[in-house]
Computed example of a mutant assay.
Amino acid sequence: MSISSFDLAIVLGNLLDNAIEAVAELEKDRQIKIKMNYDKGRFIILVENHYQGQRLKIGDQYLTTHKEKSEHGLGLENIKKVLEKYNGTMQIEDTETIFSVRLLMFI
């Protein structure tokens, strides 16, 4: 695959960091589902996790739940910058208990 290890670390690091923080708040159902598939130049990543509470957002931008807002909340924006390099897209879905991020990159 022709994606830099730095870009891959930004994407996976931020997605997994967010998922781990979300399930750490739970008493049960601490599950993170990760699927990755590369086929014919398309790289698809899916990360789903259970979470508690409501995720705040303005428009389509999710806001950090950390107290130190100036030091957090850049993860999804950094992922978007990487996706721009690879003509990629990101789809975020959240239900009452599951948060899901699906990425598609052309590499």
Rank of each mutant, 00 (worst) to 15 (best):
residue 98 I to Y: 02
residue 24 A to F: 05
residue 11 V to C: 04
residue 4 S to I: 01
residue 45 I to H: 01
residue 52 Q to V: 10
residue 8 L to G: 04
residue 65 T to N: 10
residue 67 K to E: 14
residue 32 I to G: 04
residue 93 E to G: 13
residue 31 Q to D: 10
residue 50 H to L: 00
residue 19 A to P: 06
residue 92 I to Q: 09
residue 46 L to W: 01
residue 105 M to G: 04
residue 48 E to Q: 13
residue 64 T to Q: 07
residue 106 F to E: 13
residue 4 S to C: 03
residue 72 H to R: 11
residue 56 L to H: 06
residue 57 K to Y: 02
residue 65 T to H: 13
residue 25 E to G: 00
residue 34 I to T: 10
residue 66 H to F: 15
residue 53 G to L: 10
residue 65 T to Y: 11
residue 82 V to I: 14
residue 45 I to S: 03
residue 39 D to T: 12
residue 18 N to M: 05
residue 90 M to D: 08
residue 24 A to E: 13
residue 31 Q to H: 03
residue 100 S to R: 15
residue 65 T to A: 12
residue 107 I to Y: 08
residue 98 I to L: 11
residue 70 S to C: 04
residue 28 K to W: 06
residue 46 L to G: 00
residue 59 G to V: 09
residue 100 S to D: 06
residue 33 K to H: 13
residue 31 Q to W: 05
residue 17 D to E: 15
residue 36 M to R: 04
residue 14 N to D: 14
residue 85 K to A: 02
residue 98 I to K: 06
residue 37 N to E: 14
residue 104 L to T: 15
residue 10 I to W: 01
residue 10 I to S: 04
residue 80 K to S: 12
residue 71 E to K: 15
residue 44 I to F: 06
residue 58 I to P: 01
residue 71 E to F: 12
residue 52 Q to E: 14
residue 24 A to Y: 08
residue 26 L to M: 10
residue 24 A to L: 05
residue 94 D to V: 04
residue 76 L to F: 14
residue 34 I to F: 14
residue 106 F to I: 04
residue 23 V to C: 04
residue 4 S to E: 03
residue 22 A to P: 00
residue 9 A to R: 10
residue 64 T to R: 09
residue 32 I to Q: 03
residue 30 R to W: 00
residue 44 I to Y: 07
residue 35 K to M: 08
residue 74 L to F: 14
residue 87 N to I: 00
residue 93 E to T: 14
residue 18 N to I: 06
residue 97 T to S: 13
residue 70 S to G: 01
residue 31 Q to F: 07
residue 51 Y to E: 06
residue 84 E to M: 09
residue 85 K to Y: 03
residue 78 N to I: 00
residue 24 A to T: 12
residue 87 N to E: 14
residue 105 M to F: 05
residue 91 Q to G: 08
residue 49 N to D: 09
residue 1 M to W: 02
residue 33 K to Y: 13
residue 55 R to A: 11
residue 48 E to L: 01
residue 73 G to T: 08
residue 26 L to N: 06
residue 51 Y to H: 15
residue 34 I to K: 08
residue 87 N to S: 15
residue 73 G to M: 08
residue 98 I to S: 05
residue 27 E to P: 00
residue 38 Y to D: 08
residue 103 L to N: 02
residue 74 L to S: 03
residue 57 K to I: 01
residue 62 Y to W: 12
residue 85 K to N: 03
residue 86 Y to L: 07
residue 21 E to S: 11
residue 36 M to F: 04
residue 103 L to R: 01
residue 4 S to A: 03
residue 105 M to R: 05
residue 10 I to Q: 02
residue 78 N to V: 00
residue 40 K to E: 11
residue 49 N to K: 09
residue 101 V to S: 08
residue 76 L to A: 07
residue 40 K to Q: 09
residue 26 L to G: 07
residue 72 H to M: 03
residue 32 I to E: 05
residue 22 A to S: 14
residue 14 N to Y: 02
residue 52 Q to T: 13
residue 13 G to W: 07
residue 80 K to A: 10
residue 76 L to R: 11
residue 30 R to K: 15
residue 28 K to S: 15
residue 21 E to L: 11
residue 102 R to K: 15
residue 101 V to E: 12
residue 46 L to H: 04
residue 52 Q to M: 10
residue 11 V to G: 03
residue 76 L to G: 09
residue 40 K to C: 02
residue 49 N to T: 08
residue 29 D to A: 07
residue 66 H to C: 13
residue 7 D to K: 06
residue 20 I to W: 00
residue 26 L to V: 10
residue 63 L to K: 12
residue 57 K to N: 12
